[in-house]
Design a protein around this nucleic acid. Structure first.
Lengths: 236, 236
DNA sequence: CCCTCTAGGATTGTCGACAATTTGCGTCCC
DNA sequence: GGGACGCAAATTGTCGACAATCCTAGAGGG
């Protein structure tokens, strides 16, 4: 009775995702790419009409995004896309630094360095392709895919969960400040070096590269702040 | 017309919190303390009756808890309290280690070490009181308050957000495995040493103490696993 | 001319009922 | 007696309507 394994890979019910999850994902993408700029007010009624669903599932999706920190809810006022201040850029990268550092350590110590390195290299190929196409948006997407893959490779459910929002916020930063990019070759190269250090199992170098990677980004996106000397902007 | 500042501290609208938030907090506490043991199924209808609200706000609260990772939702089946496996204990402490390491660094480098140390010392006093009362539950609560305070002191919105769930899960671990405690004096002492290193601005010692603190807990709660050598249990 | 109060509109918060789906049990056939 | 089929109960998913609350614009008074 049992089918031979591998014949029908991933046969799943027609609609495995809940409606709220679908809506949440669409809104997430819209926020991430800048289609919904920071500060935008999202009316429940209007969105419900646009998605052709009732306000129930839509509210659920919104609540989800609020708890993720992508939307800010003001009681009886409405829901707004969060706007990132300079302090937030610092905060995002400080948090990312903490998460990815841990992920890198677990990736190195997990004993599957080669497999992980291969997965990461695939995303770097994507980055290079986007770079040669001169497509900044695709480049950023591939960049984040690298970091997402790194965190996934750590095998930690909780690191993955915590990083999801951070990466979306990072994408918002990159979208908002599009134009402060470094040279694309340099950007690709930094990731290549990270992979090399990981493959070699060189913890010290890998962590140092990761810190430098974050520090670079912070100084570019929020000039005047720094992760290493604790020169954080005052909390607004 | 303006009242002198400081006369009416924190005068807030009568109902500042949304109904869903109140419900979510109550459920969180119940899960945290073990009143709702892992694996328990939570029926929406039943809970709605217990809280005397409709299913709308209740569902919102549930969704919130699901996205926090405290509940697991099976479509058309129901909501269940997550149950922690040995691998989760490891995962929780690995994630906490990452978060609290970053928080400690920011606390040290933030330039308010004395003020922060004072706040932390207050929680250690609570711990000592609970210890002398021989109240394990209060001791755990105070213990977590210490770590919560440390993370709050970092001033990072995102570290605070990410840590919230982790600390609740930690409390679940402690509740589930009540009895594997170390000597209470030792437990209090470890925190005191942490404060000392923080006040002195000694990053290296502080981080080493923090790592040891986490490592101790992991080896006690999930024997056979270790944070430092990457000996993680296979993902279930 | 400015401040205050009031009425209107709009939005969110809440509720009860209906529909879709799953699970478990009983029945029927082999 | 064992297995498969079908039905029914229970649960979640979804919907539309009502109520509470808040912002805004306008009129009135000082």
């Amino acid at each position: 009775m049992a089918l031979p394994p591998g014949m029908l890979p991933e046969i799943e019910p027609v609609s495995r995702e809940s409606t709220a999850a679908v809506i949440a994902r669409q809104l997430r993408d819209a926020i991430m790419t800048g289609a919904l700029p920071p500060g935008t007010q999202l009316g429940e009624t209007e969105l419900a009409a646009r998605f052709q669903v009732s306000r129930g599932p839509l509210r659920e999706a919104m609540q989800h995004l609020v708890s993720e920190g992508l939307l800010r809810s003001e009681r009886h006022r409405g829901l707004f896309v969060i706007d990132l201040e300079p302090g937030d850029v610092y905060d995002i990268y400080a948090a990312r630094s903490a998460i990815e550092r841990a992920a890198m350590l677990r990736a190195i110590r997990g004993g599957e360095r080669d497999r992980i390195a291969e997965v990461l290299e695939r995303t770097v190929v994507e980055m290079a392709a986007a770079a040669s196409d001169d497509d900044p948006s695709a480049l950023s997407t591939a960049d984040l895919k690298f970091h997402e893959a790194l965190i996934n490779a750590s095998g930690s459910k909780r690191l993955v969960r915590m990083a999801r929002t951070l990466l979306i916020e990072t994408r918002m930063c990159l979208t908002a400040l599009q134009g402060t990019y470094q040279r694309v070759e340099e950007r690709v190269d930094e990731h290549t070096k990270l992979i090399h250090a990981l493959r070699e199992g060189d913890e010290e170098t890998a962590l140092a590269l990761l810190d430098a990677h974050m520090e670079d980004a912070v100084q570019r996106l929020a000039p005047g702040t720094s992760l290493v000397d604790g020169h954080a902007p005052p909390v607004p």
